[in-house]
Amino acid sequence: MSGEALVATGLSHGFAGVPVLDGIDLTVPRGGVLAILGPSGAGKTTLLAILGGLLAPDAGHVERPFERPAFVFQDPLLLPWRTARGNVAFALTGRRLSRAERLGRARSMLVKVGLGQDEAGRYPHQLSGGMRKRVALARALAVEPDLMLLDEAFSALDVGLAREMQRLVRLDAQERGVTVVLVTHDLSEAVRLADELVVLSGRPAHVACRVAIGRPSRLRDDAFVEAEIRRLAASEAIRDAFRPTLSG
């Protein structure tokens, strides 16, 4: 399977001498969806940055046989001087596309995330927080990625919209066989989207437990998701992992 999967072995990393990650091993098969869970400050974002190649780990190795990675960051990180359309098109500047093609693709991608002609021409400061988040998602989808890295991508959206965007990512991933790694603190989001859950815990963080979700994601209805969440919440390992934040 080597060369066909995102494989991380023995990842360790620290900031200014403080260790954050300690010996993390992960494998995400091509087309698979992995959710990284854990209490805030557990190093989830750092791990995602290393998996995406934005950060070199202090130790360990990542095999990344992908050509078009795309990020949705925790902050939307939009260029304030570009319109929503310009921001989406910006991600395509490395491609052999004409300006008109780039803008055309940006427009249709914005429509997919529910932003029309009017919003497409607005600057980020003229959009609401949820709209900015959707622009960031459209920007990631526009590059037709083969690897998607989502960092709390749906957290600023209201429930209905979050579900809608999750569906969009899931369909896109299934249609084109995109490999997805998502960081979240929302168990239901993880259960809805992922094939495998990895829970980080401790300081420095290690993998506290791994859970596979058997049923294919398109067959997961609300009842299944609820039952699965109850099952996970009952698990000792997951409760332990989240305990530090619960106690303060």
Partner: peptide, 21 residues
């Protein structure tokens, strides 16, 4: 903004576009 620089890098935007945009 360091975040914007990281974003541009993550989408592998060419250097001249990064400088200009």
């Amino acid at each position: 903004d360091g975040g914007l620089r990281m974003m541009a890098r993550s989408f592998r935007v060419p250097l001249h576009v990064r400088l200009a945009d």
